[in-house]
């Protein structure tokens, strides 16, 4: 495996294979994780009120039959099974659910799925380059910019959005730009460093 991981070593140096050994009990989790049942049953009872939305999610065109009240967060997690995007509060107060819509960060819990119709959605799964980590993610690893990691996908998306808008932010701009994402573990100090580093990586700096 040592050799194997050398061969698959990505540009970023961090690919899934290097890490797979540590999955441990996670394998069990993966075996039982499946689609949420949240929507199918109700779908029948309210079939008439359904809408069909066309989203581009992480570069893939998807169509989903949704109820008007479904949020983008619910559709991403329960229908598309993209559980990287996390619910924290479901009312715009934590940022765990942050995604990019047309490249701009917003809260998927405060976005009706119907509103995302026709838009380009990027989730944490979508900033990966294949199985390699994106720049922001790589910087988060390097600087240990998380503890429990639950807020992390949201932080990564906020940082990604920030850097797309402002490729060379000052540390104060980073602080401001990341102020829509709570981290109860309080990894902020490392998050600031990681976002700075990510900017460097994105600008083609030292990898």
């Amino acid at each position: 495996m040592g050799k194997d991981s050398d061969q698959t070593r990505s540009q970023s140096g961090i690919s899934r294979r290097n890490f797979i050994g540590t999955l441990g009990a996670g394998a069990l989790g993966a075996a039982v994780a499946g689609p949420g049942t949240a929507t199918t049953q109700e779908a029948q009872s309210a079939a008439d009120g359904h809408l069909v939305v066309a989203l581009r999610v992480n570069g893939r065109q998807v169509r989903a039959a949704i109820e008007p009240r479904h949020t983008l967060l619910e559709v991403l997690r329960d229908q598309l099974e993209l559980t990287g995007t996390k619910p924290g509060c479901a009312r715009g107060e934590c940022g765990a659910c942050s995604v990019l819509m047309d490249g701009v960060p917003r809260y998927s819990c405060m976005t009706l799925a119907a509103e995302a119709d026709g838009h380009e959605i990027t989730t944490v799964e979508g900033v990966m380059q294949g199985e390699e980590l994106g720049h922001v993610q790589q910087a988060f690893v390097e600087h240990d910019a998380f503890q429990c990691g639950y807020c992390t996908p949201g932080q990564v998306m906020a940082a990604e959005g920030l850097l797309r808008r402002s490729p060379n932010p000052s540390i104060e701009e980073i602080q401001e730009g990341m102020s829509g994402n709570l981290c109860r573990c309080g990894a902020y100090a490392h998050i600031f460093k990681a976002v700075s580093r990510a900017a460097e990586l994105k600008r083609g700096g030292e990898v």
């Binding site: 715009g92 940022g95 942050s98 701009v104 960060p105 917003r106 809260y107 405060m110 976005t111 906020a158 959005g161 920030l162 401001e176 730009g177 102020s179 829509g180």
Partner: peptide, 9 residues
């Protein structure tokens, strides 16, 4: 007002 994401929206 609010937070960056809320201001974007």
């Amino acid at each position: 007002a609010a937070s960056p994401q809320l201001r974007n929206q």
